[in-house]
Amino acid sequence: MTEINTDKLAEAFVSALAIDAAEVTDELAYSQHPKWDSTAHMVLVAEIEAAFDIMLDTDDIIDMSSFAKAKEIVAKY
């Protein structure tokens, strides 16, 4: 697993979910934050793909249910 630029990933979350940077912690989770719904999730996928120049697989899009999980997933690519 490669190390990823966590700041860049956090920026993608801030932009896609329209939240404050302080809210981006490992505990930030899909549907537990009012702004991380299905629409925001789709924007988030696009932001992450553009930031890291990757294309996520469907299973990873489904599994990406928290910021902590997103770090693991992006590190695989």
């Binding site: 697989d57 469907t58 299973d59 899009i61």
Partner: peptide
């Protein structure tokens, strides 16, 4: 359209 595209990609596992 968008959600269909995201759920129709390659599978990783």
């Amino acid at each position: 359209q968008m959600v269909k595209r995201l759920l129709s990609r390659n599978r990783s596992n």
